[in-house]
């Protein structure tokens, strides 16, 4: 199917919204994850808290996804 240039740009925008927020989340999670694994090696009972701290940045991707869906909504 042929896409007009506007639709293409919208798609690129949506992709960027997800991709860049995912990179941001990954960078944040990398550091937290490293520290969490270190803490777990010392005290295993911290697992619950370590898990929570590690997954906190994941919300960034969700925001990216919501924005992407909103952008895609422009193509009608």
């Amino acid at each position: 199917m042929a896409l007009d240039i506007g639709t293409g740009l919208v798609a690129i925008g949506a992709g960027l919204a997800i991709g860049m927020s995912a990179i941001a989340a990954a960078l944040a999670e990398k550091d937290i994850g490293t520290a969490a694994v270190g803490a777990l090696a010392e005290r295993e009972e911290l697992f619950g808290k370590a898990l929570i701290l590690t997954v906190i940045p994941e919300t960034l991707v969700i925001f990216g996804l919501v924005i992407a869906i909103l952008i895609l909504g422009l193509v009608k």
């Binding site: 994941e58 919300t59 969700i62 925001f63 996804l65």
Partner: peptide, 12 residues
């Protein structure tokens, strides 16, 4: 806002 929006993961 971020707390409420975080539930969008249910969809995602």
């Amino acid at each position: 806002f971020s707390n409420v929006l975080s539930y969008a993961r249910l969809m995602a």
